[in-house]
Amino acid sequence: MTEQAIVTQEAQARALSDDEIVRKAHRSETRFALIGLTVLIVTMIVLMALIVDFAIDGMARIDRDFLTSFPSRRPGEAGILSAWVGTALVILVTAAMAVPLGVAAGLYLEEYARTNWITDLIEINVSNLAGVPSIIYGLLALGLFVQTFQLGQTIFVAGLTLALLILPIIIVATREAVRSIPLEIREAAYGLGADKWQTVSGYILPAARPGILTGAIVGMSRAIGETAPIITIGALTFIAFLPPSPIQSTFPYVNADWLNSPFTVLPIQMFNWISRPQAGFHVNAAATGLILLAMTLLMNGLAIWLRYKIRKGIR
């Protein structure tokens, strides 16, 4: 307020009319809006440059052979068959573990937890875990799963590690989805004589499903792109075979051998090709990167669209 007064005094001293003060304020407003827009546009240009760079470098390399060949010492013959199969299987394990656990934890914190020190501890803990660098999860997996429990460098261990990594994302998404459900729904359920679990499983969970789905998609997309924790486990980078098939023709028609198979995933294959000196491998890396980008951007786009639909539904 005193500064306003000073401004007015200065204006009087320089004999500025009210009009001029207003105009001056308008000018600085416009200037800031322009700066904001510039920053925004520059950010978008960078994102565009990234996508276009991958498209130019890698588009021509993607064909049927690239998707159906194993890695090779000759860049022209190498492909990503083992990598995309590995990614698909690892993500399957991750989803199967992270989604039920994350949803259960989120439901507990939002619906059941009383305000006490245990709840406080869990909350601080989840928020800290969300900020722990991914490579630390890799060291956890190396020290605990690979060395102490001797589980080996397998699809199961990779899926488990990534599940722990994305757990906070799913917990937070579940909590937000549950929190946005109107209190009346709970009251109506209790009024009909439902107990806590009947309310949660019959009314809260179905209503929160789209929000939870959004979180799960974002989490999966994060897991698909993660490289560092899987490198730390010590995943081999030259895998020229596929894990055993999860489906078989004889009883019981499914088998779990693939869980214990060595593997490679798309980001690891890409990292491996980037670190080679030959330009041919860089082209392969760009092609793999383009596929990864397409997958993660599509999944994030889907999540954003879902969230938009939810918000419209609530209004």
Binding site: L47, L50, D53, F54, V218, G225, I274, L293, M299
Partner: peptide
């Protein structure tokens, strides 16, 4: 949000080769 969805290994490629 899309920017934060880009895999970090893709940003690495972008940094080194672009």
């Amino acid at each position: 949000e899309l920017i934060s969805g880009v895999p970090t290994v893709a940003f690495g490629y972008f940094a080194l080769l672009f």
